[in-house]
Every structure is written in C-alpha cells, then in structure tokens.
Design a protein around this nucleic acid. Sequence first.
DNA 1: TCTGGGGTCCTAGGACCC
DNA 2: TCTGGGGTCCTAGGACCC
Length: 414
Amino acid sequence: MEKIYFHIDANSAYLSWEAVYRLQQGEQIDLRDIPSVVGGNPKTRKGIILAKSIPAKKYNIQTGETLFKALQKCPNLKIVSPNYHLYMRASNAMHEILKEYSPNIQRFSIDESFLDLNFSSKTDSIKLAFEIKERIKKELGFTVNIGISSNKLLAKVASDFEKPNNVHTLFPSEIKEKMWPLPVSDLFMVGRATTPKLHRIGIYTIGDLANTDLDYLKYTLKSHGRLIWEYANGIESSSIKSDKDTSIKGIGNSTTLPRDIDQSENALMYLLALTEMVAMRLRHAEKLCKVVVISIKNTDLSHYSHQTTLVSPTDETNIIYDAVKNLFHQAWHFQAIRHLGVRVTGFSDNDCYQYSIFDHGNLENIRTLNSTIDDLRLRYGKDIILRSTFLHKKVKPVIGGVGEDEYKMMSSLL
DNA sequence: TCTGGGGTCCTAGGACCC
DNA sequence: TCTGGGGTCCTAGGACCC
C-alpha cells in the first residue's frame, strides 16, 4: 500500500456555486455558459472581480481587476454580487462528501481540500478520483478538478492543470515532463514579488528554477529561495493537518470605506464597528488576545499599521476598543483614509481569564453582558442591538465577517 | 468614479536582560 | 570610564496564499 494525496479544487468556485443556486431558483441561464463574473459593488468602491466564468476568461478578464476594466473588455458581461453565506454552504456540502472517503482531510480554503488515502496501485487512486468528481457533480451540481500525487504540493499543482472537470496526476516521475515547462509564476509560493526577481536572474520556467544552484538562490532570496527550489523539484513532505492540529492565530476585520474619511470621529466609528465583530469572533473562538493591531490605507493605497501589547489578555470589546482608539490617535498621519482594519493576535485560551489590577468596573458582569449580546446577534442578526453612538448614523454597528462556521485559511502553508 | 477581505509566516531593528 | 555576546520580546513592514 502506498500513501497518495488528492487535492480537490472546485472550478471557478464562487461563480459555479452562484450558477447552481440560480438554476435551482428557476433561472434559465447558466452563468457558467455566458461571460459572467461575481464581483463587488463599485458604488461602495468594492468593485473588483472575485470569480469569472470560462467564457469570461476568453475576454481576458482577470480575477482582482476592476469591474470597470472588465466591462471595457466585455460590455455585455453579466455581473452578480457575492453571497458568502451561500458559498459557505456549498463549501460545507463538498466537505461532507469528501469526509466520507478519508478521515485525513485538510480544508485548505473555501474551495480546496487535501485528502490522503492508501492505495495498492496508482490506477486505483485515479479510479477513486473520478468517482469523487462525478459524485460531487451529480449531487451538488458543480465540477471539481482533482490532482493526485505522492505529496500535497504536487497534488495541488496537478489540480491546476487543464480545467474544468478533470483528474490529473503529477507523480515525481512526471515532474520533468508536466511541471518543468510551466512558467515559474505557476509555482505555489512564487507570487507578484518573486516572479520579477527570478526573471531578472534568468529564471523563467519551473524547470529553470529547479536546475538553479541552491546556494545562489539562498543567497538572493534567503529562506524563500530554498523553499521554492524544493517545490520546483517536487520536494515537500508535510502531512494532512486536521482542524485540531491547527489553531487560529489571529482574527481581523477590515473594510474599504464608501468615501474617504478625514475626520477622526468618523474613523473611530468605523473602527468601533470593526472591533465589535473582531471581539465577537474572538469570544466565539474561546480565545483571549494580547496584541491589538490597526491598519490604515491612504487614498493612494499606501498603508501602515500600528500595534500594542495589552497589560493582560482579554476578549472584552471595550478594552480592545480602548486600545484601538489609542493606536489610531498615535498612528494616524492626518491623510485621507480609504480603508480601515482591526486585528487581534497573541492568543491564549479563555479558560483562565486573568483579572488585571488595571481593570475597572465589574468585569464579570461585562463578560456576561458581552455573551448575551453575542447570542442575540447570532440569533437575530448583527443589527439587532447597537451602541448609542450608531443611532441615526449611516455606519453599520457591526462590520465584517460572514459570521458562521468559521474555518481557517492556511493559504501560504501546506 | 483608481485595487476586497480574510489569513500566515518571515525579516530586521531596537529594547532589554544576563 | 569606552564596551562582548547571546537570547528574547516587541514592532513595522513585506511576502505569500485563497
């Protein structure tokens, strides 16, 4: 028996899920068959492409570009707004099916999972991959690509080969033929910043990278150089990480403001709304945080951050917000603000809350109040209860998050 | 009407301690 | 009275992923 890894990747996930849902609702047109995208609202300055159909791809429409630009390329492009709750449900449904095949499953992102299984032959593994792919298509209505190999990295690269609705293998013996001719930017962990650096030293394909002297790469790119050299050679040996193996390290929410802000009271209102959501998620995760970070993006998209370490770990909205307020006053450059973020890290378990001598008031009562508010918001919606600051204001009292079934995003770690 | 929002890890410099 | 080295924590920024 040999251990084999599968990487399952939903094809154009958001768009496919949106298409399936709309067909179920009686819509006649399948979004997957026409040039279409899932994208944000340009009026609130969130108008970028989150997912595109294969016909849209033929117009050279790119994920991440503005709707404005996409419409120039394809004037009759169909645009639909994202519905994250729906995507979460579709993702969960896929996860439930995959779980039946192996207890060793790692949810890598909303639309990707790794499985490991034991097979007596490679042919058997391919057979099973086809079975899983067909089952998802039949039961859930969307297609997936499945990559098969002897490690997670190669399985992931394989699932990215010809799409949609395909099974590909990339075993070590196939690396030279199937992976080395690809542009180096196709390699996991070679992104926007590394690609031009590699080009500058004459590395254009994954094969070029694989055959470059390791010491030279380490000298130019430090530890990242070793990592991508190993990946280019198919060297990777991490195992499946279960939900229990990985615990969340930080929680953050951020938002692009509908309009630039140049007044601190206004900015603080958004920061409070963001803090409410961050603190609620923190309590839901049963963690305490020691570090609070704010981030600010200017109109020109340059950005900066400022952080502080608390006297003692907390999950209390007001304590976190006090820190946020101080950070903002210390950090703000008095330039117009486009985007604000609040993030907490430095986690510990919440089973032994340390009452600091600096705490004021009856914290036990405040903690009870917080959990009551969390319950109400979970049951009746985020806006059911609000601080008086938000009365008659246009700012929503709680900003960010989709608020259900959180899962980790281990995106730069296999 | 010009680029979203959620994560992780690494690095480098400074502070501080022994 | 002029100077070492190692370890750890904190902070800011940058890289990567989806």
